[in-house]
Design a protein around this nucleic acid. Sequence first.
RNA 1: GGGCGCGUAGCUCAGCGGGAGAGCACUACGUUGACAUCGUAGGGGUCACUGGUUCAAUCCCAGUCGCGCCCACCA
Length: 938
Amino acid sequence: MLDKTFEPAAVEQRRYALWEESGAFAADPASGKPPYAIMMPPPNVTGSLHMGHALTFTLQDVLVRYQRMRGRDVLWQPGTDHAGIATEIVVTNQLAERQIDKRSLGRDKFIERVWEWKAESGGTITRQLRRLGASPDWARERFTMDPGLAAAVRRVFVQLYREGLVYRDQRLVNWDPEMHTVISDLEVESRETKGFLWHIRYPVAELPGRFITVATTRPETMLGDTGVAVHPGDPRYADLVGKRVRLPLVGRLIPIIADEYADPETGSGAVKITPAHDFNDFEVGRRHHLDAVNILDRDAHIVIQGNRELQTGFHNLNRDELSWIGSLDGADRLVARGQIIKRLEKLGFLEKVEEHTLMVPHHDRSGVIIEPWLTDQWFCDARVLAAPAITAVEDGRTSFVPRHWENTFFEWLRHIEPWCISRQLWWGHQIPVWYGRQAGRTGLDLDQPQIFVAETEEEAISQAEIYYQSAVRVLAEPPIDTEPFQEAIDRAARGEIYREPIWRDPDVLDTWFSSALWPFSTLGWPEETPELARYYPGNVLVTGFDIIFFWVARMMMMGLHFMGEVPFRTVYIHALVRDERGQKMSKSRGNIIDPLELIDRYGCDALRFTLAALVAPGRDIKLAPSRVEGYRNFATKLWNAARYAQLNGCVPAAGFSPGQCRLTVNRWIATALADCAAAVTSSLDAHRFDEAAGQLYQFVWGTFCDWYIEFSKPILQGEDAAEHHETQATTAWVLGQLLRLLHPIMPFITEELWQYFAGEDAGLLISASWPELSPRKENTLQVAIMDWVIGVISAIRGVRAEMNVPPSVRVPLILKEVSGRADFLEQREQIERLARVELRDDTIPPARGIQLVVHGDAFVLALDGIVDLAREKSRISKEISRADRDIAKFEANLLNKQFRAKARSEVVQELEQRVEGIQRHRDRLQAAHDRIGAGSGP
RNA sequence: GGGCGCGUAGCUCAGCGGGAGAGCACUACGUUGACAUCGUAGGGGUCACUGGUUCAAUCCCAGUCGCGCCCACCA
């Protein structure tokens, strides 16, 4: 017997365990069923479940459960991501809380700590996924740092290097001066900041007394200026091009150049060029062969001492100037900024200061202000890899849902910049590159070392041994202090040792480098496994738009390059989950809704149904907890409907088919269910989760509970045994079908109820088959009758309420006229019961009550004095005659031979369609008119 | 500066060329043997604005205003 109320917590735990034990989640490559694969976007291994996860994994689970029921061999590939920077920050902060400094701890010890933290917290997210009801193939769970996946990463790196698509380059990069690492363009977040625009006068060296004014928001970068640019067509400065400026404070003479980059409209029209600390200036510098003077160290502190490039103008400085600039050495760039401004002002070089809001680049994870900095890094030639990815989406091998995201995808890929893939971190895939001294050089050149790229250390050693024609040893650390290294070389030269030292690149790869391989690395690549052959490419990727660039684009690039085929056919992009008021959820706003709390409060099914119902394409979800409560009530409703069925002995009958039913209500509900099933199926096929949820909600509550159950009551309590049995069986059958249709969205409650309504289809619901019901055309009469009955009952209820007739009063319903469709009145008892009326025909005089006039399949209710139908009727008449005029006009056109001869066929076709449209409209009007016509005389 | 999306009931949102809808909230009535986490009925909208296309526009097109997001840039 079912409990009086549904208790989600107990049911969820019990049911999930049963599913997992049953093996229902497992993919079965040998099954012979058509495969269906979804790669789970791997959550951060040390993370915990948030609303975004709840949404994305619910949708994936809906698809996966649906496809399993449709007989596919489903692989939902689970796993977690090592999330390099995010995890490194977490562990570093944990250590800091215990007064342990990451750097003094050392690399090996630190990595050990991260693994410990992973062991400790790594199960959290997967446990929480289980609470959400997610059903991936847990036996195949992967982690991006598993040995197999690490090997795939090295293989990809080495191959791309050999193809010239991965290379080392000196470029300006985004540098985080606190974490001491480079980050990619995508990890930079511009934040609006209030600042100042300082206008500085630079004296022209050749023309004493003449100045050129430049403006800057970062005045400290002037130490690295190596030019001033003006627009070639700017008449104000035409005579200055080719002259030089004597850089204040620094003494360096730098050229005034003409470059289109300088915008005459902006500021003074002259712009200082700092190639080592600004991305645009870097390009300008390259075009004009300007030096790049680096003024910052890795802490973003000013470097004066020993900075040869910077000191090139120092011979122009007097002692006072020299000592002042020397005092800047080691200052943080923001501190130096203030000092430089003060100094410029004092010396009269500061023309003016304006308040100015500007976008300042920050590291999206650490929040630190990013400095453009010149270093050697590893890059991936994304431009080459992007081309096939663009083509694949253009020709539809992969398509996005909703479609418009393809524009975003194209836009980014078409303007893609080299992808900086090295990171100065410890947690991640260490780059498989070893360095050594260049042959023929006696000393060490750290800037231009010999490079050995190999998948393993043994391979790297053997490459190096061939190169040096000597034994090689691997240093534990890169030679930061060059002396021991030099000594080793000297000793080798003296013949005392016979080993060339090499050392491994200490950097790790961008986390997204390994994520990009996820669709094939998890399936065993580079081995040619059966799984790889079967489940690549996957059917659909479900993810948020925020990682189209980070992840989707890169999977496309890598998948096409290494597998020769797209990684997935469809990319389903869903929006963000925001709070009730549309604000992004964040800790600082304090508006985070915890999905687990909602599950505790309302049950997992309610949360899942809510998310599915709200995920309208192309729109963010604003999640109001009241909505979850509403769908919790829906679960309760379903539960109570099932209880009703059970209390009335509705059990599945062997061999039952709704086609055998004799009662109109039973045939009607079977047809309505079939229509619902067809609609839900096509919605899910189109990834319209909101429609599927809406159709089910409407059917369960609005059709099955509100009407069918009410209709069934007198039958189930009646005397006729055959009708009784038929209705019991139908009720159980409908519930059985409904549970299947609801299962992908509400797996727990449906599984719990399934045991009572499974019929011959015993076993777990998760393994049951999807209802394949074609909408029945043959029950049109039954459907028409019941629609009519429902309409009559609703209308009577409306009149009663309007007239304030108490529910307890049985009102006489006077049958005024019945023409055409007496068969509709077979349901007269249902009408009497549900509308609380007593049906009498007009031979019994002269009762006052509600009059029911039946005319064809239309009806009308009339009550003395309350319905003024005449006016409505004439309004509709006018509209009908207007439609008639239109139709006549178009049809005349169509019949006109000359018109046909002149107009092209599509014009004719369009006109015909138009006529058809108006005709339909007219028919509707006519029906309404007839309804009124039948009852015009109350 | 480039691009995308959105303005429909008090709130959250569907709909998208011919009837303006759902859930929540609100009002009235109601405990009839599944369900008060409920039932029945009801109020509430110039579908942002202005033009255009059309026999017909909330829906298509153009523009305006407002909101949000992404990319680039701001010397």
